[in-house]
Amino acid sequence: MKNNVLIKTENLVKNYPMGGRKFTALNDINLSFNSGEFTGLVGPSGSGKTTLLNIVGALDNPSEGHAVVIGKDTSQLNHRESAQLRNEHLGFIFQTFNLLSVYNVFENVEFPLLLLGMSAEDRKKDVLQALEWVGLSDKVKSRPAQLSGGECQRVAVARAMVKKPKIVLADEPTANLDAANSYNILDMMVSLNKELNSTFLFATHDEKVIKYLRRVITLTDGKVVQDIEKTPEPNNA
């Protein structure tokens, strides 16, 4: 398996205006992430985890420096190019699942494939496969309101993974889940990471998630204070 660099940040700075001053959310971030990584950005609230995730996900632009994602400098991309990057290569998983409530499970997972312009036949095959990965083949017709929190997050994972993205960005994916569901989701992510060689980048301060990470980057006040590789300790319970 070839581990090439997918994400590289150089002297990345992000400032937000606050009153008459500016608040520095990220300060001189220099990081790189290879394909197949299972990495977490950890740190207290306000440390800049989500901001970094947003910049890497082409949802926000840096104030200074560069973030190069799959060979593209996100600060140079227009709306359409950013959308294309997200559409083709990135998958997002949110703390609050964010499923589209009026669509059923199948349709929620199908949505990214519609944007890719795939045929109905191919979409159906891929959606069913993604739902099989997350163990929800029997919930195809269910609406989000009919699912438990854990099931909703599994649908969100299926939606993020259905297009087999190179990078999956997960912002506090277990924050709204109980321990059992959290481990279930994390086991599933590890499995998909191995099967698809997608890079998983988490923003988290959940110890359960941290146990699963192979690389932990600690942020404090917008700066990287620690970047270590470790042996994952998946839950054996």
Partner: peptide
């Protein structure tokens, strides 16, 4: 706006 956020995250362009 929430729904819009999801759609943008999934890869839909703002214009679309």
């Amino acid at each position: 706006y929430g729904e819009v956020g999801v759609r943008l995250a999934v890869g839909e362009s703002k214009g679309h």
